[in-house]
Nucleic acid binder design. Structure first.
Lengths: 81, 81
DNA sequence: TACAAGTGTCTGAATATGCGGACACTACTA
DNA sequence: TAGTAGTGTCCGCATATTCAGACACTTGTA
């Protein structure tokens, strides 16, 4: 279990979300192009998303959550490893 | 009944995020106006956010996560049980 | 009744956004 | 060397977004 403690990412902003996304994508051996196809999003967008360079509204969501002492988490579906 | 599972919300889209946000806001006895002030977001925006009527980028995030079998969760900071 | 608080919703405008496509760069391999 | 795969990044554009303010409605209370 200690091997993959990173199965859960707390999202603090666009950057940490991007890092989590990339982490999981690589772990699954999926390319950006494949993920783009699977998600319906564009590869260039995914690229920027992973790098946190897009000003996605994730920022607003985090702001709202923070003000309520909430946190946003990304993790594998079904949960724990 | 079982007004307990509120410690963790799985986000499937803008609507469920809005529901979670409202749930926690009310639980804290905070008004939209107060949350707006605390978060720096606008009250009208928060109102639509809670109702899931805004097309916030949460949709894109969920799309990306779904394609990777990930889930997004909102919960109190510190992860109270 | 009168008043206030809380919320939903509308309009208008300025801005940011994702898309689409393209090119460059870096491994890696035949 | 030539070719391929994967990724970062840029531009232009049509669109969606948030903000700002206002009004209406409901509920509770004096």
């Amino acid at each position: 279990m200690s091997a993959n403690v990173d199965t859960e990412y707390v999202i603090r902003g666009p950057q940490s979300f991007g890092m989590a996304l990339r982490e999981f994508r690589l772990r699954r051996g999926v390319t950006q192009a494949e993920l783009a196809k699977a998600s319906g999003l564009h590869r260039s967008y995914l690229s920027e998303l992973e790098r946190g360079s897009t000003t996605d509204a994730m920022r607003y969501l985090v702001l709202a959550c923070r003000a309520l002492d909430l946190e946003i988490v990304v993790r594998p579906r079904g949960g724990t490893a």
